[in-house]
Amino acid sequence: MENRLVVSSSPHLHSGVSTREIMLDVLIALSPAAVASVLLFGWRAAAVILVCVASCMASEYLSAIVLKRPQTVGDLSAVVTGVLLAFNLPATIPFWQAAIGSVAAIVVVKQMFGGIGHNFVNPALIGRIVMMASFPSDMNNWVTPLQGRMVDGLASATPLESMAQGEMAYSYQQLLVGIRPGSLGETCIIALLLGGAYLVVRRVISPAIPLVYIGTVFILTWIAGENPLIHVLSGGLVLGAVFMATDYATSPINTAGKVVYAIGCGLLTVLIRIYGSLAEGVSFAIVIMNVLVPLIERATRPLPFGEERRFAIWQKK
């Protein structure tokens, strides 16, 4: 008989988990917030999400062809980037601008640096930052949910903007449900927390980053004499802490590193919010910490089993 035995390295068993399955889990976790965005901001929210997802997938597909890489559009990571970018945009954003942000996210940040797993900053956040720099007025065209279902709805200030001017116009209940102006996916805190809980239960993300990040913001704003609950519930903090700061490629791989990174995110967010000229600082805080990840990982590298704890930085062998 012909010998057709496969000889390969152990292990000969696999858990069955795949990149695609993980991305699908993230999409499932994002869906409550997506539904909430449509309920709050109307059909245009859905249209913005669709535009971003479609342009991200197209960018991913074409990049793979142009760069002669294996096709990775099937792993759904581009869909996740698209949804996350859309969540960071106002519902009134012109579609062509959303498409430009998507192309910047996928082509420039992700594919040009080597594709999935190799981007050194969060693609969706850079997409948003590119758009903020390019289209500042459209990116700040907030509408009040439920009333502003039209494209040219009532332009209004976000809670953080109004708080920076010393007034507070929204109750905690309104903030939890998301009845306040803001990016289309960031407002409904309940939906975001539901998604986060799903990711933790499915062990897609470790709770370390969201908990430490939000906790740091809470404590620091409280120390600074601001209302910590309002800081946590408004702006993009929950969206950023649960879905953006936990991005695998741009956050530390070990638990100690995750904690240091999340504290840094929280600190920078508070500094920007309180002392910076911008009302919101989540995007920049996460992107800056993304860049520091290799250094954090080096400083917090876990020791092999059984080795004595020596602090790597000042106790070199």
């Binding site: 000969h12 068993l13 594709g115 999935i116």
Partner: peptide
């Protein structure tokens, strides 16, 4: 098990 592999996504 199939032989292929894809890029590390650093999931940890």
């Amino acid at each position: 098990l199939p032989g292929g592999q894809s890029a590390c996504i650093r999931c940890g």
